[in-house]
């Protein structure tokens, strides 16, 4: 009895410490989880607000058009260059493997599938994430920090509609258009390379390109780029609109817009690919 009681305090003490320790660790983890779920809640509320407000007037048409210009037209130089070079390089790098089997005649079909299905939408989205999402994040972030968003609100203009809805719409419309354009420019790059090496004519090249792809490919790419466009606009707006105060908030908003948008684009690409593959055998 005595020995037991003699031991007991020590045991109790250590077990006490242990639970205390795990409790505080659990507390930290649960706090962190809380924050993640809180943030997720905010994100969903933000997206829900977009779908609630997009249907009702005032439609800020002029701002949508401005943003379409900003997002679409202003991205053309960079997109053109990147798309074109990727077309050439990809074709050039694919040739040796096909040449091993004496199958360089299949080059147009290979390029076509790769570019239409995957590279066109993905490259466009990644470039737009770098240019558009960061641009929106920085712009709205600085408007938040300098109280321009508050100023809009107190002058009885809905800043969410004017700033967020217009940008998300413009990005959702323009990224698919840009994707189509990138795809075309990439194919053109591919054609130049094929023409130079295999002397394929333009007509034959594009005949083979369209031979290789199906309706499902084009439909899937379009749907995918719409989703990418929506993601890019949404991420930029969410980060900017909710940017923290202070000048460093603006930089953070721009930076995390790019990182988050790119991350989501890859995840979406993976998921959509699964769905499309399932549809192919359906």
């Amino acid at each position: 009895m005595k020995g037991l009681t003699g031991f007991q305090p020590v045991e109790m003490d250590s077990s006490n410490k242990n639970t205390e320790n795990t409790r505080s660790r659990r507390y930290v983890i649960s706090k962190r989880l809380d924050r993640i779920f809180l943030e997720l809640g905010h994100v969903f509320a933000f997206i829900a607000r977009f779908f609630k407000e997009v249907w009702f007037p005032p439609y800020e048409i002029k701002e949508v058009i401005n943003q379409c210009y900003e997002i679409g037209v202003r991205s053309l130089p960079l997109i053109s260059l990147t798309g074109f070079i990727i077309g050439i390089v990809f074709t050039n790098q694919s040739r040796p493997s096909l040449a091993d089997f004496g199958a360089t005649a299949l080059l147009p079909a290979l390029i076509s599938v790769a570019i239409v299905r995957a590279m066109g939408p993905l490259v466009t989205a990644l470039i737009a994430a770098g240019r558009v999402a960061s641009g929106i994040g920085a712009e709205l972030g600085s408007m938040r920090v300098t109280e321009q968003i508050d100023a809009m609100e107190v002058s009885a203009t809905n800043p969410f509609k004017f700033l967020v809805v217009s940008r998300v719409l413009a990005s959702t419309l323009m990224i698919p258009a840009l994707t189509m354009y990138t795809t075309l420019v990439s194919l053109l790059g591919g054609y130049l390379n094929v023409h130079q090496n295999e002397q394929t004519t333009l007509i034959t090249f594009f005949y083979q390109v369209f031979e290789a792809i199906t309706f499902l490919d084009i439909a899937a790419s379009s749907v995918k780029s719409v989703i990418f466009g929506f993601t890019i606009g949404m991420v930029g707006c969410y980060k900017g609109y909710n940017s923290s105060k202070g000048t460093e908030g603006v930089g953070k908003a721009a930076n995390s817009s790019v990182v988050t948008a790119m991350f989501l684009i890859f995840i979406e690409e993976l998921l959509i690919m699964q769905v499309i593959n399932a549809l192919r055998v359906f």
Partner: peptide, 17 residues
């Protein structure tokens, strides 16, 4: 409607850049 009757001059002016 109420806000239209209130003018708010912000600390950093908050002009639209």
């Amino acid at each position: 409607a109420l806000r239209l009757k209130i003018g708010f001059s912000f600390q950093n002016s908050a002009l639209y850049d």
